[in-house]
Amino acid sequence: MTAISSDFPSAPALPKWIAPVLLLAFAYGVVPLIGSSYLFEAILLPFLALSLAGVGLNILTGYAGQVSLGSAAFMAAGAFAAYNFNLRVEGLPLIGSIVLAGLAAAAIGIVFGLPSLRLRGFYLAVSTLAAQFFVQWALTKFSWFSNDSASGVIDAPRLSIAGFALDGAIGRYLFALTIVAILTFLAHRLVSSQTGRNFIAIRDNETAARIIGIPVLKTKLLAFAISSFIIGVAGVIWAFAYLRTVEPAGFDLDRSFQILFIIIIGGLASMRGAFFGAALIVVFPLALSRLGGFLLGDLFDSGVLDMSQRIVLGALIILFLILEPDGLVALWDRVRRRLLFAWQST
């Protein structure tokens, strides 16, 4: 009965929390010392924001099985809500704005999650497009959201926690890292709780879930709310820590697809998958532009870069869907087991 699992020796009995703790220690202790400003501004900050958005979407799509194409709308809702709470509520600390922004995004997520009670799969995905278009339209149409700024582009407030300014690249990196680490830990706890089991049960067999007494409607809306909360906070990081400006156009349908690709390539229903996918999505265009510039010189301008980026990314997604539907995480686990096996047999 255990034939399948005994093909490979099990990993040495290290506790599961060792790897994340070592990684966090490295991220807090070593990276700020050796990282260049380019590494923080162009790679790590977008990586952290997109990873968190991926974690959020993974709860909804990977675990609870509800496809959504509205992630960027929830990011936008979070970013604009945080901006407005910060602007209009006197004396509200930054953390307060962020939590309220997440709650605002969660409320919008529940509203646009209502169709999930009747629609499934492809049809639900199309209905979540409504969120995408509506939120972007509302933020552009009503200039109150952007404090009547003429261009619709607003500057993010200065980041500070308890009077401690986090203005530099390193400060913003630590700010983002802390939020991402906390929310990812809580999300990890969530998916291994009974609520997380309910999510998976509804994804795998909704009828059976209803019959054994799982509150299907409530659980679906809860998945939308929690997912949107996390994606909303990711939007705050994206706007406040990474771009330092907020504009609706930055949260378009392309961004929604990008987050969906992150979890498909990284691995559905896996916390690590969001980070793997986000790393690939962030690093890949930079690597491609370096490589293109190196091979083709001046011929490789930004137009060609943009086009080749889309082509290669599209091909990658098709390849992943065919060859490794479980994503980079599954690939990584397999490689690691092989290496371990080879190492143990020598």
């Binding site: 009974q194 089991r197 309910n198 998976i200 795998d204 067999n205 009828t207 059976a208 879930a209 229903a269």
Partner: peptide, 14 residues
């Protein structure tokens, strides 16, 4: 009608 993505224990606990 099992939940394929859950372990046997989690299926039963659900």
């Amino acid at each position: 009608a099992l939940f394929k993505g859950l372990s046997v224990l989690d299926n039963v606990a659900s």
